[in-house]
Design a protein around this nucleic acid. Structure first.
Length: 610
RNA sequence: GCCGACAUAGCUCAGCGGUAGAGCAGCUGUUUCGUAAACAGCAGGUCCUCGGUUCAAAUCCGAGUGUCGGCUCCA
């Protein structure tokens, strides 16, 4: 059942560059990097005020990699403005203004910011006062930080002088609602990055460039995997190569699921309104659903599979002996995401998840989770990824008996421990109907993505859809419904993999596993024969029949990131061999066709990440 | 949805009031080549859509569509 959080494949948090230098001190300045970044925000505000005296200041915190500051300005900023602001900032840094802290009584502080014509700052203070009053406290003491001509309401801390701000760069300007509230004014947010050393700044900018190069939206076009068209925003058109990748990933998961005792089902994508009323989506999720009218009835494209799987569960009487019942479904889902948030494959309106609903008896929860951990560990090893886990516990407004929650959470926690995988706990971060384990992966550029999720639901599906089974004493019992996905959305997973591997997919899932390269046209027929031999072993092979030179064919295959290039010239044709070259540039000794086919097929079947 | 930017050949981009351009890819021909680009020629466009300004619009203005950067980080 579940609301939007059920299988939250869409909510991946892209958190660029975690860890690294964040908490490090700059050796020279001895200032924590956050103080440096926050100080840079002040310096930027100083520069903006110098250029736009009428600017109203929002907030300007340190963030991952840098800082931002929000401004209410008379006109939109241009890239030229950014350059001008950055130039003024450098002057301020060169002037080495000391940061001076001043403690100021509340009333005086309020008068100061009001006199300065800073309504957002006044609002911040009024909020603080209101909160203090609500807690029965007197208005809080406040502090200002000053440097040179600039003064800002601020708790600090800051570096000693503006000269201690490390190498920085302004990055972008973007709209941001005041306090993240779409009903409040839209401010202009300027993002910047600051680092302790020039090398770190360069490294950051390099990673940023590299991330741009690896962007799956660009690689998807270059590798001919998929395309997007305005006739269906937020939905990929899969080209033959992309679809090969897609089906290969899906079929690998199907193979694993078959081994693990899953059954696969398929339920209709178009479902009557009344189901959504029963599930609760009609009240809570309608805005995100695509509605379709037919004969004065309202249907919706399903945003998730859960409710319909309950029909299959209830299609016959279930015995305790039938459980666990593992129903996997590659259902086609549609969610009407706001047009502004769509982004390549990672934020789409149409997608498919490797979804499953597992119905178990309460005494089977632990064993099932243990099994799921194994599934996750195995499938992520295909890509050389090590998942990290996040355990979300009971939120404040949760459905169901707190005692049952506690019991479930205890079981899950024990299994997390046993799994040996790294995990963190986010208290109260569970779905409102189920504690959950979210799975994150960190890609080759250190970016973290959320993919899979496991939710142990003892309320929503079981109760709301009135599911039960007959126990050994003949009584009706509620099953537990475990919602789980491992890849999450295939679309998104492919987007993440594309960026992780920079398009150089492991052999086992590469859309084209080998290209046969005839040196001259007289080698074309043998090349086709070789390709047939390889295809006979289930390999995905192409022949480069273009009129180009061998060097050019290698270059093309190299750019297409094909794992193996099999060169065929006079020597090889005579000997019925081929000379393999890997995309890493390694030249391997010529090998007989059959032996080569067997070797590559074995390598492929092993599903190794390379 | 909201703020800003962008939309020119299959791809990457130039042109920014006066006859639509390049590189790559494609096609044709020549070359038949030994591990990351042979040579030559040809073809390729409602300059996103609709409306407006102008003698004249890819270019300026407005609306629409799509794409991109953001809209969580609370002095």
């Amino acid at each position: 059942m579940a609301d939007e959080q059920a299988i939250e494949v869409q909510e991946a948090l892209e958190a660029p560059e975690r860890g690294s230098a964040e908490e490090l001190l700059d050796a020279g300045a001895r200032a924590p990097i956050d103080a440096m970044r926050h100080s840079a925000a002040h310096v930027m505000a100083e520069a903006v005020l110098a250029l736009f005296p009428e600017a109203k200041l929002g907030i300007g915190p340190a963030i991952e990699n840098g800082f931002y500051y929000d401004f209410d300005l008379p006109r939109p900023l241009t890239p030229d403005d950014l350059a001008a602001i950055e130039a003024r900032m450098r002057e301020s840094v060169a002037a080495a203004h000391p940061f001076v802290r001043r403690e100021v009584p509340f009333a005086e502080a309020r008068a100061l910011v009001a006199a300065a014509g800073q309504p957002y700052k006044v609002e911040i203070l009024d909020d603080l006062a209101a909160r203090a009053t609500a807690a029965g406290d007197p208005p809080p003491a406040t502090s200002f930080y000053e440097h040179g001509p600039f003064r800002d309401l601020c708790t600090g801390p800051h570096v000693a002088t503006t000269a201690e701000i490390g190498p920085f760069r302004l990055l972008a300007v973007a709209g941001a609602y005041w306090r993240g509230d779409e009903k409040r004014p839209m401010l202009q947010r300027i993002y910047g990055t600051v680092w302790g050393t020039e090398e770190e700044l360069e490294a950051f900018l390099w990673r940023r460039e590299e991330a741009k190069k690896r962007d799956h939206r660009k690689l998807g076009v270059r590798l001919d995997l998929f395309s997007f068209h305005d006739v269906s925003p937020g939905a990929a058109f899969w080209h033959p190569k992309g679809w090969r990748l897609y089906t290969t990933l899906r079929d690998a998961m199907r193979e694993l699921q078959a081994r693990r005792g899953y059954d696969e089902i398929y339920t209709p994508p178009l479902v009557h309104q009344k189901l959504w009323e029963q599930s609760g989506h009609w009240d809570h999720y309608r805005d995100n659903m695509f509605l379709v009218e037919a004969e004065e009835q309202t249907f919706s494209l399903k945003p998730m599979n859960c409710p319909e799987s309950s029909f299959i569960y209830r299609s016959r009487l279930r015995s305790y002996r039938d459980l666990p019942l593992r129903l996997a479904e590659y259902g086609v889902l549609h969610r009407n995401e706001l047009s502004g948030v769509l982004s390549g494959l990672t934020r789409v309106r149409h997608f498919v998840t490797d979804d499953a609903h597992i119905f178990v008896r309460p005494d089977q929860i632990a064993a099932e989770i243990e099994g799921l951990m194994g599934e996750i560990r195995e499938s992520y090893s295909w890509f050389g990824l090590t998942p990290t886990l996040t355990f979300g516990t009971r939120p404040d407004e949760a459905l169901g008996d707190p005692a049952v929650w506690e019991e479930t959470e205890a079981i899950m926690r024990a299994e997390l421990e046993r799994s040996g995988l790294e995990y963190r706990v986010k208290p109260k971060d569970g779905a409102f109907y189920a504690p959950k384990i979210d799975i994150q992966i960190t890609d080759a550029l250190g970016r973290e993505w959320q993919t899979a999720t496991i939710q142990v639901d003892r309320v929503m599906l079981p109760e709301r859809f009135d599911l039960w089974y007959i126990d050994e004493t003949g009584r009706q019992q509620r099953p537990v419904a475990i919602h789980r996905a491992i890849y999450g959305s295939l679309e998104r997973f492919i987007g993440v993999l594309t960026e992780h591997f920079a398009g150089a997919f492991p052999l086992w899932c590469a859309p084209v596993q080998a290209v046969v390269i005839p040196i001259a046209d007289r080698h074309l027929d043998p090349a086709r024969e070789l390709a047939a031999v390889l295809r006979g072993h289930g390999l995905r092979v192409e022949v480069d029949a273009s009129g180009g030179r061998m060097q050019n064919k290698i270059r093309v295959a190299q750019e297409q990131k094909v794992p193996y290039m099999l060169v065929l010239g006079d020597r090889e044709v005579t000997a019925r061999t081929a000379a393999p070259r890997t995309r890493a540039g390694e030249q391997q000794p010529a090998e007989g066709w059959e032996a080569l086919a067997e070797r590559l097929a074995t390598e492929s079947a092993a599903r190794r990440p390379e």
